[in-house]
Design a protein around this nucleic acid. Structure first.
Lengths: 221, 221
DNA sequence: ATATGTGAAAGAATTCACAGCA
DNA sequence: TGCTGTGAATTCTTTCACATAT
């Protein structure tokens, strides 16, 4: 049993999905759930669910399935969601600001501790109850506020500079929305969301399948 | 040589990265590039670059590397970026609207053809030169405008209904930002961006590594 | 000399299949 | 019986290493 390290990103990502689904199931009042049904409702397989969980311990009851509240508690603990994380946003443009409004954000214990922008016109404005601070205060405020996670939503050209400064301030987790490759030291975890890559995958799928870009509309007659 | 199908999502995603990087290199005036340097600048390996490209043909010159403009052309063709794709947005909330402002969007040939929202207050407003239309017109307009790709940015609770309607209108590529699992028929390609999953991966990384959430600030003395 | 293209090898991730427990 | 937990088998992805071309 239990975790001897080396858990893949895919596994961790799926744990998030399981947690979200279990929360729904709990709201529906269900008390137990089998790996099979959890899998079906997450778009994976029963074996995958059991294997993912097995990296962290043994949570189910043979013949019965998983106790929903217990498994939720276990997943929250594994994912580090029992404590609160302080998050800062760098880049208070449209995308950055919209991200802060994202619903599940606070719900899971991510607290917005600071927002930064290099545009003097934005400094002093509010974003979700937090005053936008100038760029120059970045390192100092990250340290003073004890920020754990930084969301980078600045233009690609300046993203590496921002990341270097964030890392130098001791932050060890970064979520990047700038469409560019970034270097961080090994002890820092970087996740990137690249919308252009996603769109281009769709373009590839359309272009390489069919040849006909759209399914023709059903004729009404 | 050449593509006998079964190219992984990872490979396709990396082709996008290669293309972006090659465009930069081209702006710098370079005419050739080796797999090694392309790899270094994309955070992968030379063998990976060559293997990825080998699924689609043979583009390099032995002893020399790749001709930058030719490889750009080849990648644009593979990814289906030589034609324009008509994109619609469903859900003109903050995130949806912010996404439309995304820079690289138009640049690579994705044209916003329609925007929909279920809120009557938003209907008639403009989003990036396109008038927001009511929900009820969804299927009709998707077909009339010949929309190829739909971006779904609605609350999780209604995402499946929206997707079903979009699919019934003949759309075969969907980019989903709602944090929920969606079912689509096999001939439809669905990509999901789930910010909660990304954040929770970071939470996991912080919680499972160190134990100390932050690297302590360097003392100044 | 240099760097590609590609089979073969190694390494990961997923699925199978079944023993074991409620 | 029903469903978990897990080694073994399979499949998928990445890396190696080298013959081949410029």
């Amino acid at each position: 049993m239990a975790s001897s390290r080396k858990v893949s990103q895919s596994t961790v990502g799926r744990l998030s999905l399981y947690l979200r689904l279990l929360s729904e199931v709990q709201r529906e009042g269900r008390l137990t759930l089998s790996s099979g049904e959890l899998a079906r409702r997450c778009g994976t397989t029963a074996a995958q669910v059991r294997k993912d969980l097995s990296f962290f311990g043994t949570f189910g009851k043979r013949g019965l399935g998983y106790a929903v509240p217990e498994l939720i508690e276990a997943l929250r603990s594994i994912l580090g969601l029992e404590r609160r994380w302080k998050v800062a946003l760098v880049g208070a443009g449209k995308i950055g600001s919209a991200l802060l409004g994202y619903q599940d954000f606070r719900r899971q214990g991510f607290i917005i501790g600071a927002v930064f922008d290099s545009d003097p016109a934005k400094v002093g404005e509010r974003r979700h109850d937090v005053v936008v601070r100038p760029d120059a205060e970045l390192e100092r405020v990250l340290e003073e506020e004890g920020i754990d996670i930084v969301i980078v939503a600045v233009p690609a050209e300046v993203a590496q500079v921002v990341v270097d400064r964030v890392v130098s301030a001791g932050v060890r987790a970064i979520l990047n929305f700038a469409p560019t490759k970034l270097d961080v030291p090994a002890e820092v975890t970087l996740k990137s969301v690249n919308m252009a890559v996603e769109l281009e995958s769709l373009s590839y799928a359309l272009a390489s399948s069919g040849k006909r870009p759209r399914r023709p509309a059903v004729s009404r007659g």
